[in-house]
Design a binder for these strands. Structure first.
Length: 898
DNA sequence: GCTCTGCTAAGAGGA
């Protein structure tokens, strides 16, 4: 400890700033990794409190870190970084993981021993790190502009060959079997899609795949199923644990395949990856035999045996340590020839790769540059340096983004120096862009980066390894202590239906619902993120999940946990689009013109020049079903040479307009590709289109807008015309009825209201309404869950239950809305304060709308207050007598919901 | 403050 104090003094005497208070660090750390739990031991997480450069006795520089693993930040330790570790870009406030030994509160990380992992909770893939060896900038760009790397023909063949080999190693290498696997794989729909995109036909792909098959058999013949070890090819491999044994000659026998595409997350080394094949291997050396479980990496391209390829295996040996004993080596197999290379994982390689990982983590973490002057504008940080390697850059798929970022971001602020030799290349790559384009790129790059870094958008699943399931269950987003029951049903390649039950007792109260995306892990720390998928069904006793891997290979006693996949903001798509917008193509040029330089969109003059003559009558008939503004919009769209924006409030008929357009285009013989930023928008369009049969059009149900709602929405909400009709509006008002809301685990619900909704639904059905004509809306998911459970127990099916938001662009004959909120003066939340959400909720019904809620509570939301005031003046509010509530409970029995 | 948006991913090979 004396040493630590000395260090503190030394730092001050060197003129460094005084150590800021501990709280400040904590704040900074919370902002970066909100849930990081500091701890010692194997999975240690340290917070860096101070960093200083110190000269040691040999006049060499060392980096000294004062670190703590205690939440109170009181108990401090020292970490000394020697040799190349000095260059790790670690700063006060950072979270690190240390591997090695700690003696009397001091860690020493030097070239022979120990590792430091910067931001260990940021998992970086093995291939990303391997690619950073040649160019770190490219590796970072590839992580950022993901969609710029479109698959090529060779990649497709590579993927197919991987799958064929993986099928063979778990089954058979017999020539006729290989043929069969090749045939099967080439038929897979996802491969067919790629073939279509690449303009390849199935036959040529199959032929190219078949050329490899003899090498598959050769490899299997060489390395598998041998009677004596001397039949195996001689190889050179010394494992680190062999010590100084000079005899590196050995025979390697592949016994079996233990897993395919094993996906491993390593929060210890800050790595993730998928291992092509995990194999059991016997290493025969002299008369000794060692058994190891090793990663086997397949390559279908040139037999390079390159640093990149070998590094991938070194990193996979680190990943493997999350699941089992250190493999110490991996196997690199080139499928073109069937030649296999053993790759030992020695300390030096691991150290250098982890140092690259740290550099990359630093770059990915610091995307926004910290400004020394507080008032200075927030700006993007420079990327790693541009390398000067014409050969590498010539074929780089990120060259466009690289040059663009340099010109639009880095050169504007003089933040980086470009190697002189690369200046012409950068100019060449960006000369088609105007200053306005560069500015647009820079601005949106910054905006999107900021959005992705905002607090609730951490693309991180760290709670899976930092928080026990029992603790996570409190938040309602996790279920632990699960065991697998029943057989796993294989739906297709990559879709397996699993059933889980709680080891003891019922499934706890949870927010998880059917349709939610989840990550399956083992409760043990060795089994993070085994598989991903979504919840198919969930009830009191069991959870059914559709997963991307069959986990029945694990022991039956394995305890599992399900974690809801956190919502993340996807900036990959917009960033990809932004990059594409800057490309030197005619299409992008036109888009830049319209979007960035605001060229006015152009329109042709006459419809007759776009519509085929014989489609005229059909089109006229389709248009008849629209109101005037919709018909005007439609005409504009048909005349459009560039684009037309259709803007309107919820309920004004945008979806209907688009549907009509699709039908017109279809009538004219065009094929129509629907694309949208959101899935549900396309779903809604398809749903509406499904109502019309091939040429048989059922239109023209004259939609009369309920006067009151129309008046209200026009005057108070949006001053535009909703086209939805409301034949009758009622309000059930439950203040005579005790119906308090329940707030639990981040969800709000109201059981009494749910019962009333289900009761009313059953009345409608008894009166002859089709269940599929009835829709139930609530703003809160928890309420939907309860309503769904009640409907299920009342044997009511086909009634659609959804959130307000999901009902955008949809309608139903009868809509029942449950507002849920009911409390005297507690918090009422933000959700219902949004008038747009309210507008959606009340404009979804075609014939009958029933709003259910507690008037005094709802009056506290300004937009709802206005609506209630209006309904009251029109005498549309109905008090619910208390007997109603009593009899209702009788009808629904004693079911209490969950 | 509890709604929604995205819908895999990590690697497929090139030089």
């Amino acid at each position: 400890m004396a040493q630590l104090e000395e260090l503190g003094l030394l730092k001050k005497s060197l003129g460094g700033e005084t150590e800021p208070p501990a709280e400040q660090f904590q704040k900074q750390t919370e902002a970066s990794f909100s849930k990081t739990v500091l701890s010692r031991g194997v999975d240690n997480r340290y917070l860096v409190l101070a960093v200083s450069i110190v000269q040691n006795e040999e006049e060499k520089h060392e980096k000294h870190l004062i670190i703590t693993a205690s939440q109170s930040l009181e108990y401090k330790e020292l970490c000394i970084l020697r040799n190349d570790w000095c260059s790790v870009p670690v700063e006060p406030g950072d979270i690190i993981h240390l591997e090695g030994d700690c003696l009397s509160d001091t860690w020493i990380i030097d070239e022979d021993f120990g590792y430091l992992i910067l931001y260990p909770d940021m998992l970086i893939s093995g291939t990303s790190i391997a690619s950073s060896i040649r160019c770190m900038r490219r590796a970072v760009l590839s992580e950022t502009f993901r969609s710029s790397d479109l698959a090529t023909r060779q990649m497709l063949i590579g993927t197919v060959l991987h799958e064929v080999f993986q099928k063979a190693i778990s089954n058979s290498f017999a020539p006729e079997k290989l043929q069969e696997f090749a045939f099967q794989t080439v038929q897979e729909i996802r491969h067919l899609k790629e073939m279509y995109r690449l303009n390849l036909n199935q036959e040529e792909v199959k032929q190219e795949v078949e050329e490899y098959l003899p090498s598959f058999s050769k490899w299997a013949g060489d390395f598998m199923h041998k009677y004596t070890s001397t039949d195996l090819p001689k190889m050179q491999l010394s494992l680190p644990s062999d010590g100084n044994n000079n005899n590196s000659t050995c025979n390697i026998e592949v016994i079996n395949s233990l897993d395919i595409e094993e996906s491993i997350w390593s929060p210890r080394f800050g790595l993730k990856g998928k291992i092509d094949v995990t194999v059991g291997v016997k290493i025969h050396r002299g008369c000794k035999t060692k058994y190891k479980i090793m990663p086997l990496e397949l390559k279908t391209g040139k037999e390079l045996n390159s640093i990149e390829h070998r590094s991938q295996l070194v990193l996979y040996t680190l990943l493997s340590q999350e699941r089992r004993a250190d493999p110490e080596a991996g196997l690199l197999l080139y499928l073109k020839t069937g030649n296999m290379y053993p790759v030992p994982a020695n300390h030096l390689d691991k150290r250098e790769l982890l140092r690259l990982r740290n550099q990359m983590a630093f770059s990915l973490f610091h995307r926004i540059s910290k400004s020394a002057i507080e008032k200075e504008k927030t700006k993007l940080a420079p990327l790693p340096q541009i390398i000067e390697d014409q050969q590498s850059c010539k074929y780089c798929s990120q060259i466009g983004n690289c040059a663009l970022y340099s010109r639009a971001v880095e050169q504007q602020t003089d933040d980086s120096s470009v190697p002189i030799g690369m200046l012409p290349k950068i100019k060449e790559e960006t000369q088609h862009l105007k200053l306005t384009h560069l500015e647009y790129f820079s601005l949106w790059c910054l905006m999107l980066t900021l959005e992705s870094q905002s607090k609730d958008n951490k693309k991180n699943h760290q709670h899976i390894w930092l928080m026990p399931a029992s603790e996570m269950e409190e938040s309602g987003t996790c279920i632990g202590n699960l065991i697998r029951t029943e057989c796993v049903k294989t739906i297709c390649d990559g879709q397996y239906l699993h059933n889980f039950q709680r080891k003891n007792g019922d499934i706890p109260v949870t927010n998880l619902m059917a349709g939610d995306r989840i990550i399956l892990s083992g409760e043990e720390r060795t089994l993070f993120a085994l598989s991903r998928g979504y919840v198919k069904e969930i009830n009191v006793t069991s959870v059914t999940c559709l997963l991307d891997r069959n986990v029945s290979v694990l022991p039956e006693s394995t305890l599992f946990r399900l974690d809801q996949e956190e919502k993340t903001c996807d900036i990959d798509t917009p960033l990809g689009n932004l990059s594409k917008l800057m490309e030197n193509t005619c299409v992008s040029q036109k888009l830049r013109d319209l979007i960035i330089d605001f060229r006015e969109p152009q329109f042709i003059s006459y419809l007759s020049s776009v519509l085929p003559y014989d489609a005229k009558d059909t089109v006229a008939c389709i248009l008849k079903g629209l109101n005037k503004p919709q018909r005007q919009a439609m005409k504009k769209v048909l005349l459009s040479k560039d684009y037309t924006l259709i803007v309107g409030m919820p309920g004004t008929g945008k979806t209907t307009t688009i549907c009509t357009l699709v039908r017109i285009l279809y009538t004219c013989g065009f094929s129509v590709l629907l694309t949208s930023y959101t899935h549900s928008a396309v779903d809604n369009i398809l749903l509406k289109l499904a109502k019309f049969k091939i040429g048989f059009l059922r239109l023209g149900r004259s939609q009369k807008v309920h006067q009151d709602i129309q008046k209200f929405t026009e005057e108070e909400i949006c001053r535009s015309k909703p086209i939805k009709s409301l034949a009758l509006l009622e309000e059930l008002y439950n203040s005579h009825v005790p119906a308090p809301e329940q707030v639990e685990k981040g969800g709000v619900s109201n059981i009494t209201e749910a019962k009333l909704i289900v009761f009313l639904t059953s009345v409608f059905i008894k009166a002859g309404c089709k269940p599929s004509d009835i829709g139930i809306i609530a703003p809160y998911r928890q309420q939907l869950k309860i309503i769904n459970d009640l409907l299920f127990h009342s044997s009511i099916r086909m009634v659609e239950v959804n959130t307000v938001d999901k009902y955008q662009g949809r309608d139903k004959s009868i809509i029942l809305v449950s507002f849920v909120r009911s409390n005297k003066d507690g918090p009422i939340g933000e959700l219902l304060k949004d008038w747009r959400r309210l507008n959606v909720a009340i404009t979804r019904a075609k014939h009958k709308l029933i709003l259910l809620g507690c008037v005094p509570s709802l009056n506290r939301y300004p937009p709802l207050g206005k609506l209630l005031h209006h309904l009251n003046s029109e005498k549309l509010i109905m008090d619910l007598p208390s007997e109603e509530h009593e009899s209702l409970c009788h009808v629904l029995g004693d079911f209490q919901g969950r």
